[in-house]
Structure formats: C-alpha cells, structure tokens
Design a protein around this nucleic acid. Sequence first.
DNA 1: CTGAAAGCGCTTACAG
DNA 2: CTGAAAGCGCTTACAG
Lengths: 345, 345
Amino acid sequence: MATIRDIAELCSVSVMTVSNILNGKTDKASKDTVERVLDAAKSLGYEPNVYARELRQKNTRLIGVIAEDINMFTTPPIIEAVMAFCEENGYRVLVKNLRMYTRWKDNWYRNDKEIASVVGPAVRELKSLKAAGMIYIAGHSRDAEPFPEDPGIPAVLIYARSLSGKCTSVLIDDAGGARNMTELLIGKGCRRIGLLCGHPDNLHTIRRLEGYKEALLAAGIPFDPELVVYGNWERAKAAEETRVLLERKADAIFAMSDEMAGGVYDCLNSMDLTAGKDISVAGFDDHVIAGYLHPALTTMKLPLARMGREDARNLLERIGSGETECPVITCRCSLVERDSVAEKK
Amino acid sequence: MATIRDIAELCSVSVMTVSNILNGKTDKASKDTVERVLDAAKSLGYEPNVYARELRQKNTRLIGVIAEDINMFTTPPIIEAVMAFCEENGYRVLVKNLRMYTRWKDNWYRNDKEIASVVGPAVRELKSLKAAGMIYIAGHSRDAEPFPEDPGIPAVLIYARSLSGKCTSVLIDDAGGARNMTELLIGKGCRRIGLLCGHPDNLHTIRRLEGYKEALLAAGIPFDPELVVYGNWERAKAAEETRVLLERKADAIFAMSDEMAGGVYDCLNSMDLTAGKDISVAGFDDHVIAGYLHPALTTMKLPLARMGREDARNLLERIGSGETECPVITCRCSLVERDSVAEKK
DNA sequence: CTGAAAGCGCTTACAG
DNA sequence: CTGAAAGCGCTTACAG
C-alpha cells in the first residue's frame, strides 16, 4: 500500500504538501505541484489509511446504524436507502444488528431494561469509533429513547418517536394511510368497516385508528366502537377476531397489517367466503405476502426507502451545519390496489 | 475518553505495562499490578481506541461482508448469522451492500464486467481497512470469482462457487433437497412429477434437476423429459409453464422456488383446481409467502442461518490458523410439510 | 517483573 | 507557495 510519504518522495515535496493537496486545499500549492502529486497518487494506487486519518482527526466520515433486527421485513429497505445516501455523500456506514427478535422473540419490546442492556454496548462501540452520526432503526413505532445519556453526536430515530427531542424522528404517516384506505372503502359503498387493530397501546394502532375515525367523520358515518377489535399483529389472533367482526355484520375488514389480513383470509376460507367478492378486505404494509394472498390484497405501501433517505439526509445536514434542532419527519404511504376490495353490491 | 496513558498515570506504571496487561499478557506483570491496572481501566470506563490499535497492528479484528443485495430475502438471515458468530468471537463486521438489484433489476447477474466494476471498489475499501477476512454473499448460486486479483486475506463465498479454489464456498445442498422433495412426492403415490425449473444454465436448476432424477431412478420411475419445463424464477412465467405441465398429464408439480409455486397456484386458481386436492404442489425456499399461499405450500427450507454460521466459522478458523485450504461446504435443506401435497387417490 | 524509545500514516498549528 | 516538528493512542522490539 502506497502512503502519503511515497508520493512525497516521488514528487520531491514534503508530506504535508501532499496531504494538503489530497484534501482539496489546492490553493496552498502551485498548479504544477498539484498536478504532479495527483498523478503520482493515481499511478501508485494510493488509498488513504483510514485509521491514521481518523486517529488524528476528531471528525470521522462514519455513520453508525443500529438496527433492532435486520430480519424484520421493514428493516433491509431502510438500511439500503440509508447506505445509498450516505455513500453517495462520502460517508461509510457501519451496521450493528441487535438481534432483538432472535434473543427474545416477541417479548423484547415490552422490556425496556433489557433493550438498554443491548443498546448500550452498541452505542458505546460507535462512539469509540467516533461515528459522526447515529441512526437507530426500531422494529416498530413507539416512544423510545435509545440514547438515554445524551448521544453527543447527531442522531436519528426511524420508526420511533423521541420524547426528549434530542433526536430527529422519522415516522410513517399512519393516520393518513389509514384515512386514505378507509376513504377507499367508503367510496366502494362500505358503511360498516371492521377495523382489526394491533396491540391497543401501540402507536401504529393509535394513529391508524385516528385516521379511520377521521375518514368516517368526513363521510358522515357514525363511529361504531363495536366494529373495532384488537389483535396482536399476528395471523392466528386476527382470524379469531375476524369472526367477531363478521358476527357484528361488518361489510369490510381493514386489517392494520398484511399478516393480520392473512388471518382474515384464513377465517374467510374456513367459511367459504372470498375477499373482494363476499366482503372487502384491506391490509397495511404491502408486505411481499400481499401479492400472493388470493385474491391479491389491496394494501397501503410503507414508505421505507423514503424514510431511510429522509433520515440520512437530515442526519448529514445536521452533521454539516451543526444544527441542533431535531424535527419530526413523517412520510406518506401509498395505496396499492389489488383485488380484495370491490364495489359493494 | 480515557486512554492507556491515563491508566498508566493513575497506577504509576508505564503505558506499555498497561498495554501488556490489557492485552492479556498478564505473565509479564506482578499480580498486584495486574489487578490495579484492571481496576483502573474499569473505573475510568476505558475503551481502546480502535484506530490507534489498528494503525499500529498489521492484523485487525474486522470482517468485511460484501452483499450483492440485502433486499433479497435470502441475505438478511445470512448476515445476521455471520454477525452473531463474528461478534461472539470478538470481531467487528462491516457490511457493504452492492445494491445489484436496484442498479440493474434482474439483469445484473448476466453481466460480469459491470459486477466487477462495483465489487472492485468495495474490495479495495475493505482491504484499505485491513479487514482480517472477507465474506461475499451472492444473490444466487453460480460460478463466480469476486476477487479476481488474489484477495490476499482469507475469503469466503456464500451461495456461489469459486472456480479458482482461492475462497471457501458455502453452498446449499440443492441436489439433496430436490431429491428429498421428489421422494416425498413419490411416497404419496405421484408418478408423473412435473418439474418447474429456473433458468436452464443456473446452478440451482442444474443441481435440483439432478436430485430429482436421482429420486426417480431410486424409485424405478423412468425419467420423462417432457415433464421438465423451464421458467425464469418468476411467477408469471411459472403460471404459463404450469399449463404445459398439466397438458402433459403431470400428477404433481414441483417448482424450484416458492415464488414460482405462486405462479403454479395462479394457474390452478384460474382453472378452478386446488393444490393438495386436485394435484400436489411443492416449492423450494420456505419463503414467507409459502405459509400464506392457500392451501399452504409444502416446501424445502433453505439453511440460511447455518450457511452464515458455517461460513463465519470457516473464515475465523482460517484467520486463526493460517490454513490456506479452502473447502466447499454444503448445507442441507429441511422439509417443511404443509397442505399442498396429499396422498394420491 | 518493568520501562524508554521508536514508529504506524496521517493532520495540525506554526514558521518561513 | 512550501516545510520541519509535534502528536493522535496504541504496540513492538529491545534493554535492564
């Protein structure tokens, strides 16, 4: 590996001139020298030694990403977008995977103390690596404070809301997505839209419920609490709750996740009913399964890539500007119409 | 951040004594000193400066992972397993995502030159980071040489086969998986098993076809080339080919991927036929969609986590031992029986 | 059992 | 426009 010194010797200049030129401070040297140094660097295949540079400088070009679980279907598209943006802007990205799901199955998000015991070391490692910024990708929306001791560097939360306001938060427009889906259903003539929710205390649940109510209100349809049932984001429970909704004469079922919509289909199948024919069914997420359910599921697509990009953009901006204001950024979902919602006869 | 020097001053010893002790060379110091230094390190919250260490040492504790695309469903579980194993053994993992799919859609694996133009910089970066080892995660099986110029450090390929033998290759036992699935089908009484393949020149295709033939041979069933059709791993084409297979009186359809099995279901649905009732259908992968297809799809689960672990294990072993022999490691699939295969009446 | 010195490859004031 | 010197935090021979 060629070093700055090799270049200096080759060009008969000092290492610091080379350093200056390589760092773009070309006004400090004559055009001739600049050219000779640049040529030499190229011909020697010079690559700066990251360790030497970062040891000396206080600021690195490293962004640390902490993902609660890269096996959750929402995480890889976000990471991909974050990496793309950061790398285009000359930052390296280091991903730490907390493996929450493997560790504790579904129970992990109930236990903030255990989470802290896993997040802590990851944050410490990134700080000892002198990361210029940190991105925390939560598995789902909630109020969270992954950096209890002030991170000390710009930080962004995706999918979670920071209570302290010390991090930017990037969130899904849950209310808007649910409102739009409910409007679609109303437009098709549905009047008794059953809402199959996730856990009651979950932020996605709360916001999507708001959106549902807004749409009803705007259409002048009275809100009937009987038509709102709670599941646990899982397929099996969703199938059970579907039966309840059907007994209550729902003429459409809007599930808050595609996996739960899978449960709705299970129930319909067992009763020889068909989505989009006997009853309209809608999901949320645009998970891969949506297109393979039969009939294909109409759903709201999560703006994962956009969230990743907005997130990285905000972070790099704050790193560059020293801005300390941390906004809450909300990204819109988009409707994907397939075959499970039909005009009501 | 506390440094080695702070500890030295606090304990009134030299920095090198501290360095020795912190690196486990405790035989070079008195028990008393060891204890005092360790205590001081803990109370100061000492974290070694990675940059300083890696600058000085030739060997780092960094494993570089290059993924062709982390959005492929096979990749995250592999990365997760790799990270888990490496971190348990004190290695950091840096993931580079090549974003092949985003760049070139489905065409990327046909163009080795363009691939090289993207892989090259990633490899160079990892080498300039002095990675102790490299892992390349391909999107699918093929003969590949991601490190055309000798990597110079231990390297492992997942999902691809190295022709040069300069990398360990970790592969799926495609032949075994296909053999087992075919045996299952034969055991259920099927005699005309239609095989819905991927691209003809693809390694998965070739090996799974072998396994299929082996099972037929063992059962004394003559191989009928009419029952083998080729798709392109995609759903739509698979639906078309299913029709061909049905015309040729297949009594079961074994699709080489779950996504193609989705196409089989599309065709059956359009003809009012049901998998597991009118005809047996089997897939390969155990992709999430398998459980949401209706009836749920019987398939072969890919050993992704095991591949990741075996891979990391081999790499760390070779880093530790200096062993240069590069084995080809094959991991078995496991059968997941659901509802799409039934006893033939 | 312990330490003084050199050096990894770079950047940062400072001087000329 | 150019350079000599110091130093980032650590480890590596070498000496005592």
